[in-house]
């Protein structure tokens, strides 16, 4: 199967008062039809900017975008706004973190879904209303007919996010990008939304690109994972391989810094959490070599400081598990404290 979305050597820089902020520095990934790809990283890792660049949603006046993003055989980078408009929604749908700021507060929910429907096809008002109510029902909103007349502020956070998903589904996209779509929600509501997206994915056969910082969410939903740091992919693998054999020092650090809910020991019996010293680098002044070098516990001095490690298979047997590190974690030092 050929990928539905293929990104190659994507680079994004913002012109700022302080200099050129290099936020995405050569990212490659493929999204296969129907799969869930998770892009994981902390604030400033470039995970959101990557998806915004693919859809041409960054402010052009201050942004430099290079590289390639091919959707369904069609290059997206550098295309006209008119062309991208047809792709957004119909080809690639997007759900953002905060539904309150992404929805228009002065328009009813029905009006906003109708707008999304009419952007892609001509239909009678009546047909549009029917379809809008259907979509609301599909995302699990009770009394969909009545809710068409509701304004965003009349809905709870979870319901608003369902409306956003209904809007994203309006164009029947092949890829749904969910950018921190459950971050602002409570865990029980997050569980509802995760279940909803899983169900919709099964029904519509769409691929989902899940952008998040939450490694717990990723463990439950992803097929494949990309870990980003300072605008680069530092590790990628099938979800089980990533968690059982994290091979980049950053991934290992992230995973072992998480408190575990189901650790049977009491708080007093637990060891302190593993921490990574320092902070991610300033995108205006990226280090010459590996961007993780200043924080890395495994660094090999001269080489890591001056050379950027390429993304390479971690072992001959694991072609799809790749990490960008000169330090090779071998069988002798399996991740300590197997999680």
């Amino acid at each position: 199967m050929s990928p539905v979305l293929s990104v190659r050597d994507l680079r994004v820089a913002f012109r700022t008062g302080g200099g050129l902020a290099r936020v995405v520095n050569g990212v490659d990934f493929d999204v296969e039809p129907g799969e869930t790809l998770a892009i994981v990283g902390e604030s400033g890792s470039g995970k959101s900017v990557t998806s915004l660049a693919v859809l041409g949603l960054l402010p052009q006046a201050v942004t430099e975008v290079h590289g390639s993003a091919v959707f369904d055989g069609d290059e997206l980078i550098g295309r006209s706004e008119e062309h991208l408009r047809r792709v957004r929604g119909a080809g690639i749908g997007m759900v953002f973190q905060d539904p309150m700021t992404s929805l228009n507060p002065v328009l009813t929910v029905g009006r906003q879904i109708a707008e999304a429907l009419q952007a892609h096809e001509k239909a009678s008002d009546r047909a549009v209303r029917t379809r809008a109510a259907e979509l609301l029902g599909e995302v699990g909103i009770p009394d969909p007919q009545g809710r068409l007349r509701a304004y965003p502020h009349q809905l709870s956070g979870g319901m608003r996010q369902r409306v956003m998903i209904a809007i994203a589904l309006a164009g029947n996209p092949q890829v749904l990008i969910a950018d921190e779509a459950t971050t602002a929600l409570d865990v029980t509501v997050q569980a509802q939304i995760l279940e909803l997206i899983e169900r919709l994915q099964g029904e519509h056969g769409m691929a989902v690109v899940w952008i998040t910082h939450d490694l717990g969410v990723v463990a439950g939903i992803a097929d494949h994972v990309i870990v980003m740091y300072a605008g680069r992919c530092v590790e990628e693998a099938a979800v089980d391989d990533l968690y059982s054999r994290p091979s980049h020092p950053y991934t290992r650090g992230l995973l072992s810094s998480l408190p575990l809910l189901d650790d049977p020991r009491s708080a007093r019996e637990r060891d302190p959490l593993t921490t990574m010293p320092g902070l991610p680098p300033d995108p205006v002044a990226l280090p010459e070599g590996c961007a993780f070098y200043p924080r890395c516990a495994y660094r090999l001095d001269d080489r890591c400081k001056t050379e950027v490690p390429p993304l390479a298979p971690v072992a001959a047997a694991a072609e799809n598990h790749r990490a960008a590190t000169f330090y090779r974690i071998d069988a002798a030092d399996e991740p300590e404290g197997q999680r």
């Binding site: 865990v187 029980t188 997050q190 569980a191 939450d214 490694l215 717990g216 969410v217 990723v218 463990a219 439950g220 979800v239 089980d240 968690y243 059982s244 995973l255 998480l258 575990l260 809910l261 189901d262 999680r339």
Partner: peptide
Amino acid sequence: AVPVPVPERE
């Protein structure tokens, strides 16, 4: 509802 960062358990 709290996601656990261990795929096989989650």
